[in-house]
Design a protein around this nucleic acid. Structure first.
Lengths: 243, 243
DNA sequence: ATTAAAGTATCCCGTAACGTGAGAGTCAAT
DNA sequence: ATTGACTCTCACGTTACGGGATACTTTAAT
């Protein structure tokens, strides 16, 4: 399917699809020789997910993090979205009630408190927001933090060692033997901590080091550009050891 | 009530209220000696209106035009908003249906067409949107256009005359006798056309000449800055003749 | 085989509705 | 008299596209 077809189907503009392509949120499965974007069925499903999250008020950056996270569970997401949509419907019902009351009120029928006048607007007390935050929001970061907390001082030492030695070689090409050996240490270390990363997940983790600024800033404290270096080396590591 | 109180009540940020103040959308009834904003009950009702329109996707600029138009009918607005909110609820229900189907689908339960996958998203076919557009959207401009269409060629001539003579004196102070005489001709002309503007509405019309770019560009074709000059002169004219 | 119309591409500047400090003054309560 | 919660005004930053310019492709109709 070509852009306009998809745009019309989903009720969005062509420009929007261009934009999603630009920021790497939804990349068409194919492009013709002339450079035309061609979208697959899978693309459509992803787009559906994106639009659901958007309807629920998630910023595109966060949507990207969520759906591109290797551990993203579509089923889980759908159920959560279902709950949140119901919540939104509830708020909408409240607003409809509010406006009906207001109509009565302005006819002189009834009295309204100030709080009643704004029932349904207060977005901040969505009970599922917190749950959603726990599920996706800062999931990876929180996991990392918890792991860090539970590290023994011995592990902490080791952790810092690994990072420092990686920082020291961060200007070598990521496919070099030294780099790969350093990344191997990192992979072993993580798995010893009880994470049991698959190679695919390990690769995805590397991407997050760069795409999620909370990781990036933490990592780059060991040396400028370390996050990028690690991502590249981790990708090569994963691809190499797969075969 | 002070800003934070209002912000908390309505579920918006203090910055948002500052912003609405800046763009002249919601101006606090009072300000203390220290410059603190103080909001009245009337302010709260206006804010409620603003938030309703916002929820329905109206841009702030248009909201301002609507609620500050002298002919704005709050009752009418409330009823229309009620309809539109119901429409929105209907779309939301569709989306909830969509997501429930998707959950079934991804479990392998049922088949879904591409159109089904996006049911509820297509925003552009809201049946009330057109109605709303007619009611508020381009109301004033449309009225002006229709009036212009129905003008006889004699009237057209006269119309151009008035504007040209106003353009000629647009660099004089708006309170000058010449300016006021010109504006008087304009007021007489409009009322002869069958509009029967009150002085208050006439004043509001002048404001729209500047605030609504569709007017501004048309008017300024007769001479740069004419719209601003007319607004100022019309305000003075209205205030003067009221007493 | 042409040619007009419709679709698509990239580039790039513009906009709307705030977010987010910075720096400073204000107010009620301890 | 001081702290902590509020408030003010700049002023720059951001998000999610909108919209025009310009050029190439594809499709439908002559």
């Amino acid at each position: 399917m070509k852009v306009k077809e998809v745009a019309d189907l989903a009720g969005i503009s062509v420009r929007t699809l261009h934009h999603y392509n630009e920021i790497g949120l939804l990349i068409p499965a194919e492009t013709t020789d002339a450079g035309y974007r061609v979208y697959s069925e899978t693309n459509l499903e992803t787009l559906q997910q994106i639009l659901f999250f958007k309807e629920l008020g998630f910023p595109l950056k966060k949507i990207k993090e969520i759906i591109q996270n290797p551990s993203f569970d579509r089923q889980e997401a759908l159920i959560m979205q279902h709950k949140m949509l119901l919540e939104k419907k509830y708020r909408l019902d409240q607003m409809i009630g509010t406006i009906e009351k207001t109509i009565q009120h302005s006819k002189g029928g009834i009295q309204m408190s100030n709080q009643e006048k704004f029932a349904g607007f207060d977005f901040s007390h969505n009970p599922y927001e917190q749950e959603a935050r726990e599920k996706w929001g800062d999931k990876a970061v929180n996991q990392a933090n918890e792991k860090a907390k539970n590290m023994t001082s011995f592990d902490q030492e080791k952790f810092n060692d690994v990072f420092r030695s990686l920082a020291a070689i961060r200007h070598l090409p990521p496919e070099s033997n030294e780099a790969q050996a350093g990344i191997d240490k990192w992979y072993q270390f993580l798995n010893k901590l009880g994470n049991h990363y698959t190679l695919e997940a390990f690769k995805g983790l590397g991407q997050m080091y760069v795409e999620d600024e909370r990781f990036t800033t933490n990592i780059d404290q060991f040396g400028d550009g370390l996050a990028v270096f690690m991502r590249d080396a981790m990708e090569i590591y994963a691809d190499k050891n797969k075969s």
